[in-house]
Simulated assay, not measured.
Amino acid sequence: MCLLLGFMISLAWVGKETRNSRSAFLRADQRVRVSEALVDPEAYEQSVNEVKKLQEEKTKLENALSRNGTDSKVLNDSLQEMKSFAGLTEVEGPGVAVTLRDSGKTDTGFGGQVATNPDSVIHDQDVVHVVNELFASGAEAIAVNGHRVAGTTSFRCVGTTILVNDVKIASPIVVRALGDSDTLFGAMNMPGGALSQIRIFDPAMVQVEKVQMMRLPAYTGTTAKKWAKVVAPPQESKAAK
């Protein structure tokens, strides 16, 4: 009985070796139907392997894209942070506004002539003292009459006018600073501070107020460097040698 069952199973098993010999026992119409529905095991296995490889490649690409996306975000965040630090982006937040204006006081000189006291005029050094005091007190961004203060910003007097990055500004001069408004306000009202001498001459020359929200423009001056060159990291320098 077992032998008979084994023999019948061997006859029923259709493999690559027996397929052609077994088809000889079929009628012509049966051979056509079988050949049309026939699945080649080798071709099927090859297709499965190709699909598997494609799935693996897809997974690799997705992982690479995910890593690149994360790296790109980190680089972009770092770039935006550096641009903000350099003053190249528009920023907003709380802070203080310091207004400096020339005084209307005059002195009577020799012979009863009216003369203008130099202390009655806001000078470039007054603006520099205010800006430095604000930065020292934690200001994160400063603009003077709408001109953003950056690393290369300069203040100087030419006659009766003040130049900010070679742009003329006139009284009243408004210095806006972003940061902790209480701290900045306290720094501007500190005894013996940047504004004390101006207030001694004429308190009306100075006004300091807290601002809940304001926006400062981005730095618009040149960022090109003619002489300063970026130094390569040590490992790159060694590799170049």
Rank of each mutant, 00 (worst) to 15 (best):
F85M: 11
F110G: 03
V74Y: 01
E92R: 15
T183W: 04
Q197C: 06
P191R: 04
V127M: 07
G69Y: 12
V34R: 04
T108S: 10
D124R: 03
V231Q: 05
V208L: 04
I169A: 04
S10T: 10
A240I: 15
I198H: 00
V34G: 06
H123W: 07
V206I: 07
R199E: 13
P233Y: 04
G15D: 14
P217S: 13
T222Q: 12
A232H: 09
L54M: 14
N117R: 04
V208P: 00
L65S: 11
L38C: 14
D107M: 15
V91K: 09
M190Q: 14
S154F: 09
L26V: 07
L3G: 15
T220G: 11
V128T: 07
L11P: 00
R148E: 04
V114W: 01
G159L: 07
T183L: 08
A97V: 15
Y219K: 06
K229G: 05
S237H: 10
I9W: 10
G15W: 02
L195H: 02
L26G: 11
R199G: 14
A28K: 13
M1D: 13
Q125E: 04
G146K: 05
C2R: 02
G109S: 11
V167M: 14
G221E: 02
T89S: 13
K73H: 04
G179M: 11
S66K: 12
R19S: 12
L61K: 09
L184A: 00
D71N: 06
N132T: 15
A150P: 12
H123Q: 11
Q30V: 05
L11F: 12
R156I: 11
S181T: 08
E81C: 02
Q197N: 15
A64R: 13
A86T: 04
V206A: 05
K16F: 10
T223P: 01
V164T: 09
T18G: 08
K60S: 02
V74M: 06
T160S: 11
K83I: 07
L38H: 15
D126Y: 03
A24Q: 14
S171H: 08
K225R: 10
E133L: 05
E42P: 09
E90R: 03
V211D: 00
D126T: 06
V121W: 03
V51Y: 10
T99W: 02
K226S: 12
H129V: 05
A204D: 14
K105Q: 13
L163S: 09
V164N: 02
I122D: 00
E57P: 00
A141D: 00
V230M: 05
R19Y: 15
I142A: 00
L75S: 12
L3R: 06
G112R: 01
P234G: 04
W13A: 13
R156C: 07
R101F: 05
K229C: 04
D180E: 11
L134K: 01
V121N: 03
A143F: 01
D77F: 07
S78C: 06
E17S: 14
E90F: 00
G159P: 03
D166K: 02
V164G: 03
K60R: 13
E56F: 09
L75Q: 05
V96A: 03
L75G: 05
G192C: 07
A143V: 01
T220Y: 01
A136M: 08
D29K: 12
L3F: 07
A240F: 13
A136Y: 01
S120G: 15
W13F: 10
N63I: 05
E56T: 14
